[in-house]
Amino acid sequence: KFGRVHERAEGPAKILAIGTATPFHWVDQSSYPDYYFRVTNSDHLVDLKEKFRRICNRTMISKRHMFLTEEILQKNPNLCSHNEPSFDVRQDILVSEIPKLGKEAVLMAIDEWAQPKSKITHLVFCTRSGVDMPGADYQLIKLLGLSPSVQRVMMYQQGCFAGGTMLRLAKDLAENNKGARVLVVCAESSAIGFRGPSEDHPDNLIAQALFGDGAAALIIGSDPKMGLERPIFEIVTTAQTFVPNGDCHLALHLREMGLTFHCTKDVPPTIAKNVESCLIKAFEPLGISDWNSIFWILHPGGNAIVDQVESTLGLEPNKLQATRNILREYGNLSSACVLFILDEIRKKSGREGLKTSGDGLDLGVLLSFGPGLTIETVVLR
């Protein structure tokens, strides 16, 4: 008597548009150690500064975009301390800036989509910054002038794996609601975790050397309108798992001094060791076991992770080039990073006149991972 209210779509979910945005301000990685130790009044920690310089040199990052300028840091000195309470200051900045950054990426996506924004039916927003109620999803709806009846899902504090999570959720929403057009937004800022150095917490140096700011937005829907919408990728399958006891290797915690970062040297080999089982589960039903026969979007948690995944799986050097390019130009953008790589690989395919948006290949994989050593596996066509 009370059956399904919403009719299912006929076809699989497809990515119809991609937009990205970054803050205008950026830092050069080669000179960042001098800048970082100067603005945090830590130049007296000579040995720690040299250690940080070595870490920065190993990241293979060229530059990173950041909202925090020297002027902002001078006005808010607690942000430059390692342990002073600064959460309220971070909140005041990020509750406002995260939706604005997301808006810039959304406008780029809508411009490519070339359809009225009134056709957006759902919003899925993800960030690890600016936790608030009502959330960044609500603020973004107002900034864009979208209908208050847009169906919203707000996900805070997920971390680097969440780019894949957003695709998984959007696929379910698009395929189970005929005519749905799902706006996916990942907006991230390193301002939540920026803090001064400490000899007692070397993990913090890794975070300060890796993370950048950026937002990515996608429009996802099934059954694209012929002649009006141009699909870029099809989302074939999605899956999530985590490595048992992985939280002892990688975890982040909200504290009075901001978001703290805990990471062990076992993260790269542990991820590399567990990736292939995810690939087998995803691609065995499709008859694929040659990992060089697919295109790759791999989250660059750090250069060591990229190198070890490449080595463990025997990947050809060009397979992870898009990942390395984004890491070099932006650093680790947390949940937004794989979506930047997705954009990079389709643009490169277009520039080179390849037959598909995925490096000329039919199928590919998007792998994202993060806290708890959670792994998201997304098969794309």
Rank of each mutant, 00 (worst) to 15 (best):
L48Y: 00
L146N: 01
E276Q: 08
A251F: 13
H65A: 13
R346C: 01
A239T: 09
K273D: 06
E256C: 05
A105L: 02
A136L: 14
S118F: 07
K103D: 03
A336M: 00
T264D: 05
T377L: 00
K142I: 01
F340C: 09
L366Q: 10
V365Q: 15
I305V: 10
V379D: 15
S31C: 15
E376R: 01
L143P: 06
S334W: 00
S129F: 06
H44P: 00
N325W: 08
D307H: 03
E10S: 07
Q29M: 03
L107P: 10
Y32R: 07
A136D: 11
A17Q: 01
E234M: 05
F340E: 15
A105W: 01
N83A: 15
K319L: 01
F87Q: 00
S357I: 01
R58V: 01
I375P: 14
L140C: 03
K14D: 08
K273S: 13
A105Q: 01
A304C: 06
L123E: 02
N303E: 13
N332W: 00
T374W: 14
L279Y: 00
N274M: 14
Q115G: 05
A239R: 06
A251V: 00
L333T: 09
N292L: 13
I120N: 01
T312C: 10
S335Q: 00
G331C: 15
D362M: 01
F37L: 08
S30P: 00
A17K: 00
T374V: 05
F261D: 15
V378F: 10
K1L: 06
I341T: 08
L228R: 05
D290Y: 03
D359A: 01
D247V: 06
N318F: 13
G360M: 06
P77C: 01
S289I: 01
W113G: 01
L79W: 05
H82E: 14
K347T: 03
T374P: 15
N292C: 03
W113K: 03
D362L: 00
V46W: 02
M108R: 15
R381W: 00
E376P: 14
A336S: 12
L228Y: 06
E376C: 01
H82S: 01
R128S: 14
L315T: 02
V236W: 12
T312N: 07
L380T: 15
S149R: 14
V27F: 08
D43T: 03
P231M: 03
N303V: 07
A136F: 12
T69G: 05
T238H: 12
L143G: 02
L367A: 15
E276T: 10
W26Q: 01
D266S: 06
L298C: 03
I141H: 04
Q74E: 07
G102A: 15
A21G: 04
R230M: 10
F233R: 02
A322V: 09
H249W: 09
I341Q: 09
P231S: 14
R346I: 12
P23V: 03
L250I: 04
E352F: 15
S129A: 13
I18T: 02
P148Q: 07
A13C: 00
E112T: 09
H249C: 14
P33H: 01
I18H: 15
F283Y: 03
H65T: 03
R128G: 04
L327M: 15
R64G: 08
P99L: 14
E7L: 08
T377P: 15
S289L: 05
G130W: 10
F295R: 04
T22E: 06
G11Q: 09
L279R: 03
K347V: 03
H253M: 11
L366H: 13
S118P: 11
R346M: 09
R38I: 01
I15S: 06
F233V: 01
R54S: 08
H249V: 08
Q74H: 08
I15T: 08
L354W: 05
L68M: 04
L320R: 02
G11V: 01
D43A: 00
M60C: 15
L367D: 15
N57E: 13
Q139L: 12
V267R: 02
L366T: 03
A304F: 00
C337L: 04
P12S: 09
T69E: 09
D247C: 05
P244Y: 03
D362E: 02
N76S: 09
S349L: 10
C278W: 04
I326C: 00
T59G: 07
F340M: 14
L298A: 02
L367W: 12
D247K: 15
Y35G: 04
N41G: 10
L333W: 14
K265W: 02
V275I: 13
L298I: 10
S334N: 15
K1T: 14
V338I: 10
D28H: 03
P12D: 07
E7T: 03
P244N: 04
M133Q: 03
H249D: 04
T127I: 12
R381N: 00
N57Y: 09
L279I: 10
S368F: 02
P300M: 06
L259W: 10
P116F: 01
N303Q: 15
T238R: 06
E71R: 08
Q240P: 13
D88C: 11
